[in-house]
Simulated scan of single mutants.
Amino acid sequence: MTKLDIHQILKLLPHRYPILLVDRVLELDEGKRIKSLKNVTINEPFFTGHFPHRPVMPGVLMLEAMAQTAALLSFATAGVVPDDKTVYYFAGIDGARFKRPVEPGDQLVMEVELLRHKAGIYKFKGVARVGEDIACEAELMCTMRTIA
């Protein structure tokens, strides 16, 4: 099982503050699954407006964290080291469910399993947890493209 620290993640993902949502890869089994971690702090810029009286991580950012995790699995599976011409896009989200709010101080652990890939389209099953509790789950479809 491979592990990645933030320095290795920064070499693979184009995302930067405030949209980089993966702090560490805990486990990576190429072609199969990945487990990553996002430390959620009160310093996240979205908490200012979501919500001032009760800070909660937006669900769409939980999905984005799972998609970034999925991208890392895709790159490892395809043997690709992305460059500034590689773009990784969402192609679809199915069955998204939000089951627990994510708040400052939580550690969001994303587990993403590769279900299949064909013709550059990858399909994943993702679950994000805080402790043992499921915070979010969805099936994600993503694609990798090279831009001119």
Results as ranks from 00 to 15, higher is better:
residue 105 G to R: 13
residue 68 Q to H: 14
residue 114 L to D: 03
residue 119 A to Y: 02
residue 122 Y to V: 01
residue 121 I to H: 06
residue 124 F to I: 02
residue 120 G to F: 04
residue 126 G to P: 02
residue 96 A to S: 08
residue 117 H to A: 13
residue 112 V to W: 00
residue 46 F to L: 09
residue 122 Y to C: 02
residue 88 Y to M: 15
residue 45 P to R: 10
residue 48 T to D: 08
residue 116 R to M: 10
residue 66 M to R: 10
residue 100 R to H: 07
residue 73 L to D: 07
residue 98 F to N: 06
residue 119 A to K: 14
residue 94 D to Y: 06
residue 66 M to L: 15
residue 108 L to S: 12
residue 99 K to Y: 12
residue 51 F to H: 13
residue 117 H to D: 04
residue 46 F to S: 07
residue 92 G to L: 04
residue 37 L to F: 04
residue 124 F to S: 07
residue 90 F to Q: 00
residue 124 F to V: 02
residue 97 R to W: 00
residue 69 T to D: 11
residue 37 L to G: 02
residue 108 L to D: 05
residue 125 K to Q: 15
residue 131 G to F: 07
residue 120 G to P: 01
residue 66 M to E: 06
residue 109 V to E: 14
residue 89 Y to V: 03
residue 107 Q to R: 15
residue 42 I to T: 04
residue 93 I to R: 04
residue 46 F to Q: 05
residue 38 K to A: 00
residue 48 T to E: 06
residue 35 K to M: 02
residue 130 V to H: 06
residue 114 L to T: 05
residue 110 M to S: 15
residue 69 T to F: 13
residue 46 F to P: 05
residue 111 E to A: 12
residue 68 Q to V: 09
residue 125 K to H: 13
residue 121 I to L: 15
residue 101 P to A: 03
residue 53 H to M: 03
residue 58 P to E: 10
residue 119 A to P: 03
residue 115 L to H: 05
residue 113 E to L: 02
residue 82 P to C: 06
residue 35 K to I: 06
residue 54 R to N: 10
residue 84 D to K: 12
residue 51 F to R: 11
residue 89 Y to R: 02
residue 76 A to L: 10
residue 71 A to G: 15
residue 108 L to R: 00
residue 125 K to A: 14
residue 109 V to W: 01
residue 81 V to W: 00
residue 75 F to R: 01
residue 40 V to D: 00
residue 82 P to Y: 07
residue 61 L to R: 08
residue 48 T to K: 15
residue 77 T to R: 03
residue 76 A to E: 15
residue 76 A to M: 10
residue 44 E to H: 12
residue 47 F to R: 08
residue 125 K to Y: 13
residue 37 L to N: 03
residue 54 R to Y: 14
residue 104 P to F: 02
residue 126 G to S: 04
residue 104 P to W: 00
residue 101 P to Y: 05
residue 39 N to D: 09
residue 35 K to V: 12
residue 54 R to M: 06
residue 86 T to S: 06
residue 125 K to E: 15
residue 127 V to D: 00
residue 41 T to Y: 13
residue 68 Q to G: 11
residue 76 A to Y: 14
residue 74 S to C: 15
residue 88 Y to K: 01
residue 83 D to N: 15
residue 124 F to E: 08
residue 93 I to K: 03
residue 46 F to G: 08
residue 125 K to M: 13
residue 45 P to H: 09
residue 92 G to N: 05
residue 128 A to C: 10
residue 75 F to G: 11
residue 111 E to T: 15
residue 107 Q to C: 05
residue 106 D to T: 05
residue 117 H to M: 11
residue 68 Q to M: 08
residue 67 A to I: 10
residue 60 V to M: 15
residue 97 R to E: 07
residue 127 V to E: 05
residue 130 V to G: 10
residue 41 T to Q: 11
residue 90 F to N: 00
residue 67 A to H: 09
residue 104 P to L: 02
residue 53 H to P: 04
residue 103 E to S: 11
residue 98 F to W: 14
residue 70 A to N: 01
